[in-house]
Design a protein around this nucleic acid. Sequence first.
DNA 1: ACTGTCTAAGAGGCTAGTCCAGTGAGCCAG
DNA 2: CTGGCTCACTGGACTAGCCTCTTAGACAGT
Lengths: 232, 232
Amino acid sequence: MEKTARAGLERVTRPRLYEQLVEQILAYIESAQLRPGDLLPAERDLAERLGVSRATLAQALVALEVLGVIDVQHGTGAVLARRPSVASVIKGLREHRSRLPEIVEARSTLEGKLAALAAERRTDDDLAAIDNALEVMAREINDGDRGAQGDELFHQAITAAAHSSVLAQLMAFIAEMILETRMESLGQPGRPEQSLASHRKIADAIRARDPEAAAKAMLAHIELVSDVELLR
Amino acid sequence: MEKTARAGLERVTRPRLYEQLVEQILAYIESAQLRPGDLLPAERDLAERLGVSRATLAQALVALEVLGVIDVQHGTGAVLARRPSVASVIKGLREHRSRLPEIVEARSTLEGKLAALAAERRTDDDLAAIDNALEVMAREINDGDRGAQGDELFHQAITAAAHSSVLAQLMAFIAEMILETRMESLGQPGRPEQSLASHRKIADAIRARDPEAAAKAMLAHIELVSDVELLR
DNA sequence: ACTGTCTAAGAGGCTAGTCCAGTGAGCCAG
DNA sequence: CTGGCTCACTGGACTAGCCTCTTAGACAGT
């Protein structure tokens, strides 16, 4: 989960102390071989060791709590959640982000299913939103633009049409990583037009309420959009 | 994402001010019709309006940042992330958690893919971990237990064997929701044995490096484990 | 008119100190 | 042995203050 500017210039990343603390605590957990149920050092203690104030440490602990790594209990301390696996996973992700193949893998898994569900469950309103996204993208391309906004709109419309909030949440989770690849893909010459054409295929399958065709079209689309990235 | 005791007695939920603040701010964003890129009120201002200190509000903002709802910029303020959809999704999830069908849907999507990948990519070590999980579960059942620990181990082993950190992270994301269903499912008479048998089928397919069979066996397994829940 | 520099207001970042509120171990009286 | 008390320890929250960063506007210099 990064929070940087999307397009063009990135705002220089301003360091946030609590983020560093999260990393350090994660590293500490690993190095100290702490297991689920174990307690972290007391706040006052930890704050002093890390050289920060309690208030700042508290922010880091909130972050870790939201991430599901720990469970802070009043009067007892911060206990490691039973699934410390996330800790290592998160850590791994931070290090080699941009694991394009894995992102594509996750994306095609989710979006293939979403497309199939959308074909089954879409309402007329959903379909209208999808068609609208197609129009926006067509207009953008006509204006010499890359059609990134229409592209994003389209995928959001599909996600909404699937009517599955859990899957939608998972998509939101990897949406940022996808965005980064999207910009590059649409930068390829001729790519926006191809992308739009495959969007149309997906939309048609959803319009016809054909789940298999929709999933297949979506997978083909993602493959198309992703292959250039793999050159890197 | 709740953080309560799993089995038996729940520790009385201790209120955390920052959690309430997150809810309130989410509600505020919705009611004020804020759009991506808009700024939240200044910290000092917001803190006063909500009747809390800046330090506490800062914790809530960290939580919202980790959740991907806002992006706090030094000197500027807290700007809404471009994908405020997550805000509503998260809110929706909190309200009607226990949307079992949707959880099952997401789970089968992810685990089906994970099983197929595991069949392709598993190392001998991965296989050993899977077999070990089977043994643990068999032993638990033999001792009259429900085999919940072995069950969890098994699914973790499969996830690890797929060697896809992004998908693994997504699984971790919905792991808690799954846990709640798992306990109930294994409580059904005769269910642990059935579950173990279908685990063996999955393991065999992965051993044989047969992705399709693995995915199919996993989907069948999840269906088996989930159908009783739907009675509710 | 344009352009670069300076400045001040206002934003968040972080700290230190203080007090409040649960938790749990140990002691002691019944 | 049990129940209740106490106390040390843990997190929860607030306050006051100072730092850094951002931005807009004034004010030059070109």
